[in-house]
Design a protein around this nucleic acid. Structure first.
Lengths: 226, 226, 226, 226
DNA sequence: AATGAATGAGCCTTCATTCAT
DNA sequence: TATGAATGAAGGCTCATTCAT
């Protein structure tokens, strides 16, 4: 068992590649402070998801971001602050979209399916998925992070889900109304898929779409629209 | 975000009590090599689940196991080997029980329910749950571990689950036979529960039992037996 | 042993007040280069005496002086140059007063006593005392500073002292004329007092005035005038 | 002003030179734990007195002691603990000798002179003198150190001095009994000499012996014995 | 002249691993 | 087999100094 260290991927954030040319001052003031900050966050996302929190060296983050090590500390108090920011940045906007109020027209099933597909597209198998897996594991040791994550991501996501379920119940689409008390059941296959693809993609790739269709069939009375 | 470091719990593994007594040589040759090895694994389980892979110090593992630091290297090649062994030891036997062939008498729902309850009892909220969360996160970085985990734990667990589903289909208990192609759907709420209790227990404890009942109601036609 | 970092005092140097106001540009061109330089020196005095040479951060000096960090380098080659200048500025003028030629009228004892009292007032327990202690310790590692200090401060101070002693011998006030060869003996209790108050003020405050009276009594034949 | 960094001297502690030979395991267990500890303290004394507290690198201490950097941490909690220990070790035994009860026979002047000569021989111009100068300067920033130093060194030394003075008064040797209230006056020229030789040795060496003779003449009525 | 963002060398401390005993 | 002292590489963070603006 030898630890794998890097990974080609990197869907989130600007490429930032090309830094580290021989000329000592390649860009410097060509980019503003916020771009620089974004480059650090993007590099951090790459490194943290590839190596985990403890094994990530800020040296590598700096190199990947094309800045000096000390520069990181101009923008973030320490390694943990960078990690937190990164979770916020990478997952926050997505959750906002997932927690969108139900559109009001169309079926609840379609609304759920649309959101699930967004999740599949934007999270499963991407760095965001890796990050989510990181939070799952490290969260227990960083109560502040778990707190933040619950407040900003989970509770909002679940609230949105519950709204959708109630909407579906009102429309008579939901087979068993008791699920309204357990919106986690609606999300569970998505979490399962994130984990599966992160760990067992190579051993046994998961047909996420098919699985989700069956999942929706279990919950909704009529899948004609899917 | 300050890292939390220890945790009182510890349901899994042999007691290992008595270590750390004042007398420096508490037992020595009173215990054989395999007991010694077991003590190290048990201590490793405590430490790894409490602090994570990187933050665990072999010094602490040794102290907790009541052996010298160097002794660990007599039994394990390195830190990673100990971690692998520990996953094997802590989760292997459990999987064997979960993957038991269906008993042949009684309903499939009961069989699933029984196994789920075993999982809830033995994993969720215990060190095994913490370990499972660790594997979820670190697995991506330890391909050998992910491999092993897939072979020894996941594929066997899923095979058992599939058997149960087919048994249920044969008995006409299953609402939607398509679930046979996605046994992950059966397990997803359990995974979700492990994660939830590990991370958000304090913010919003989950009524696992209630959730599982609804879950079974979604899948099985008749819950009268539950 | 935890390092103490700041200290309220600050008798020496221009006020430098008003800096650190909320408005980012408090004065700028309202003050000339020499005022700016003086502000830096004054801030340096505060910081160096409070934290020592190595522990002083130029960042803090700059902030306290109300200038940008880079500005310091417009006036001083580096940290050491600032420290040297500061010693020159803070102790030079005082020495000039201490080394004043004997007034010609009045007793030698009174002249010594007057100068000692000046020293007590202006040095002991003040920032100048802290600075003197710094020089005592760091001097060995900064030969140029020790040189300067010897030339500008010590040799001149001792020469003045010797003059006073000879004046006293001529007037028959001195008990033992051999002290003329060792003017350091005259100053030794003052040095002792600076050190004592700097280190042991809290444990056992020193009655400097009483000690000095006895000291003079040992050297001068008649203390009636004191 | 360029900082001088090393210094050939080194009166205290075993030489410890010669370590770092090409062979990877030159001695190791040839020396015991306490010798190793002593070597670290001795190396620390060299380095701290040569460079000051902050500028001393534990890397250099380790190299000079012939051990690995990490080894220092087996014996001392951190840099400060090493420094404290070093002060204790280097100055403690000396103080014990200086604070010896007066012998009971012979003149007080002789007793003082003997102790002063011991101080001159063992402190002035040696590493112990450098260390003393360090304490003088850093003490203000390390209250715990100043505390320790006052308790272990200064108060004991002064108490011994006071005893001697009272012994001298009883024998009628002391010119001015008021000095009993200010034993610091007795020690002041010694402190002065330590500082002088540490800083101005090269500019103007001090004839310490001559100065001390005059000092004693000022205090004692009869110097015939000196 | 003045700024302050950026740099990167440097250092204390930790800890997995080794090995003489 | 067991020990635990010793090792030394590694990494987070600081801060004097530089330089584009």
């Amino acid at each position: 068992m030898k630890a794998r260290t890097s990974k080609p991927g990197g869907e989130v954030g600007p490429p930032v590649a090309g830094q580290r040319s021989v000329a000592r001052r390649p860009s410097k003031r060509l980019i503003g402070a916020s771009e620089r900050r974004a480059a650090i966050v993007a590099a951090g996302l790459d490194e943290f998801t590839a190596k985990g929190f403890a094994a990530t060296r800020l040296d590598d983050v700096a190199r990947r971001a094309g800045v000096a090590k000390g520069t990181i500390y101009l923008y973030f108090k320490d390694k943990e602050a960078l990690f937190e920011e990164l979770v916020r940045t990478a997952l926050g906007p997505l959750v906002a979209r997932l927690a969108n109020p139900p559109t009001g027209e169309g079926s609840a099933r379609d609304a759920v399916r649309t959101r699930a597909e967004l999740f599949v597209r934007e999270v499963i198998g991407t760095q965001r998925g890796d990050l989510l897996r990181m939070v799952i594991a490290e969260g227990g040791r960083f109560p502040a992070l778990a707190d933040f994550y619950y407040r900003e991501v989970v509770s909002r996501g679940l609230a949105g889900m519950r709204k959708l379920i109630e909407y579906g119940i009102a429309r008579g689409e939901i087979r068993n109304p008791e699920i309204a008390a357990h919106p986690q059941l609606m999300a569970a296959p998505l979490v399962m898929a994130v984990i599966w693809q992160g760990l067992f993609r190579t051993q046994a790739p998961l047909d996420t779409a098919a699985m989700l269709r069956v999942h929706l069939d279990l919950i909704f009375t009529d899948g004609r629209t899917a």
